[in-house]
Structure formats: structure tokens, C-alpha cells
């Protein structure tokens, strides 16, 4: 049995997996550990010297592996290696086309969870204006976010493309991303208190949120399945939700009790006359 210590990132796993594959070490003989201080219980630590060529693998698998690597499930490295082995040494070249296979299905579900987390980060990051650079006039924004998986590196490109014209930092407990108009760079995670709590625009945003809600169509579970409560603590609009739900019944009742108004004759108006002429012709 080989215990293979790696950093919990895709590149680290890929480098070691390549060596193991070249040396023909089958998946059941590998114990992956992304906590270097804690080697496996019965493991022997030994260097595996690569022997032979590394078999080729499709870019589809590498994309899948890059996503799966960001998941927090501890089993991901071994399932990734098992699928890699089956694709190359195991003679199952078409394995990724078999979505009903247990391993493939597992990888796809992990990748899907990571993809969803990235999507939610793109949706729920809230930038707060902190300063304006006196020399360049560029506005500077900071956001705090708590992703479920380690997705900051995968998710950051979107913010660069979208917010190229402003300086920003996204702070999270794992990794932080920063953009200064020229380069995107990453630093280690920070605690919550490093980010600002409020923005002057929060009140206007809450006004919008309150006003766009239609109390006659209450569907709380539909809201929560797309915006789970775990995200609420960093959303400025979330504190309104309870009151909006509680007040909706009374608002609908009031609408329904309002006396309906009868149609009134059209006012004298040149434009309305011209419309009637167009319809008639």
C-alpha cells in the first residue's frame, strides 16, 4: 500500500496520479492523503519511481477532475484515480459515456455540486464600496463570501471579466481573489471581520427587493430551494424575508376587499384618437 500525500488541489493530485499511473500502481494499492501530517494507519511511505510512459487521457476527464478536486469530500482523490485507471489501464476507454456507472455518476455529482457552488458564488457575492483611488479614480470594492467548496480559483475569472473597470477583492475563509485592473491574484483566506458589513446602497436594494415581491403568489419553498438559508447571512435583503412572508396574507386580503373600479370613458387625447384611426383603417 502506498500512502500518497498531496496538497488538496488539482495540480498536486494530477502530478502524483501521473507518476502512479506510469508505474502501474493500481487504485486499490493507493491511499490518498491531503493532510500531509497524517499518514494512513497501515501505510508505508515510499517513493514511487515512474516506470514507463503516462497513458493519454481525454480533456473531458481533466475538466471533470478539475471540478471534482474543488469538492470537499475526502473520497474524491481515490475515486478520481480509480476512474483514471479504468479509462487508461482498465480498458474502459468509453467509461465517461456511461453515466450509469457508479464511479462516473459519483464524479458527475461532485462536479455538479461544485458547479452549483460556483454559480451561487457568482450570484450571491455582494460588493461593498470601500474607497476610490485618488490618482486613478477607480472605485474599490470588497466582498465577503463563504463557499461550500474550494472554488475561489475556479470562480474568479467571471468577476475579472465582469468587473474589469473597478478594483475589487473577494475574501473567503479559504482563499481570497484580488483584481487591480491589471492582474488577478490570490492570497490565503481571512476571517469574516476583515470585510465591511454594509454598503450605502443596501437600503435602496432592500427597497427594490420588497417592492418587486408579489404577495399574491407566495412560494416560499421555491425561493428556498434556489436560495438556501446557508447563504442568507451574507445577503443584505435576507432580513426582510420573514416579514414579507408574514405580511402577504393581509396584503392580498386588502386587495380582494378593495372595491373594483368600473371602466371610465377614454379621455380626449390626440394620441388615443390616432390609435383608434389606425385600428379602424
Amino acid at each position: 500500500m502506498h500512502t500518497v500525500p498531496i496538497q488538496p488541489v488539482f495540480e498536486s493530485w494530477r502530478d502524483r496520479a501521473r507518476e502512479l499511473l506510469a508505474s502501474g500502481v493500481p487504485p486499490e494499492e493507493v491511499l490518498w492523503s491531503d493532510e500531509p501530517q497524517a499518514p494512513g494507519l497501515f501505510a508505508t511511505l515510499e517513493e514511487v519511481a515512474p516506470r514507463g510512459a503516462v497513458p493519454k487521457v481525454s480533456p473531458v476527464f481533466l475538466d471533470l477532475a478539475r471540478s471534482v478536486a474543488a469538492h470537499r469530500d475526502g473520497r474524491r482523490w481515490s475515486v478520481l484515480y480509480r476512474v483514471l485507471w479504468r479509462l487508461t489501464r482498465g480498458g474502459e476507454r468509453h467509461l465517461l459515456a456511461v453515466a450509469t456507472d457508479g464511479d462516473v455518476r459519483q464524479l458527475q455529482q461532485w462536479a455538479k455540486a461544485v458547479g452549483r457552488d460556483i454559480h451561487k458564488m457568482h450570484a450571491f457575492v455582494r460588493f461593498r464600496l470601500v474607497a476610490q483611488d485618488e490618482a486613478t479614480g477607480r472605485e474599490q470594492f470588497v466582498a465577503w463570501f463563504e463557499p461550500e467548496h474550494r472554488i475561489v480559483l475556479l470562480a474568479a475569472g467571471f468577476f475579472e471579466r465582469r468587473f474589469a473597470g473597478m478594483d475589487w477583492s473577494i475574501l473567503t475563509p479559504d482563499d481570497c481573489a484580488h483584481w487591480d485592473g491589471v492582474t488577478l491574484h490570490f492570497t490565503p483566506g481571512v476571517p469574516r471581520r476583515a470585510a465591511p458589513d454594509e454598503d450605502a446602497l443596501d437600503d435602496l436594494w432592500r427597497t427594490y427587493y420588497r417592492s418587486i415581491f408579489n404577495p399574491a403568489r407566495l412560494k416560499v419553498s421555491a425561493m428556498q430551494s434556489e436560495m438556501p438559508k446557508k447563504y442568507w447571512k451574507n445577503l443584505p435583503e435576507a432580513p426582510l424575508i420573514a416579514d414579507l412572508i408574514a405580511g402577504s396574507g393581509g396584503r392580498v386580503e386588502k386587495m380582494l376587499r378593495t372595491e373594483a373600479s368600473a371602466p371610465r370613458p377614454a379621455p380626449k387625447n390626440r394620441y388615443l384618437d390616432s390609435l383608434r384611426d389606425r385600428t379602424a383603417s
Partner: peptide, 11 residues
Amino acid sequence: ICHSYAPDGRC
């Protein structure tokens, strides 16, 4: 991207 959801379930 849906940046929020109102209690009417709408994006």
C-alpha cells in the same frame, strides 16, 4: 444568473 429570489419564488 439569479442574484436573489423573492418569497414568491421568482428569480
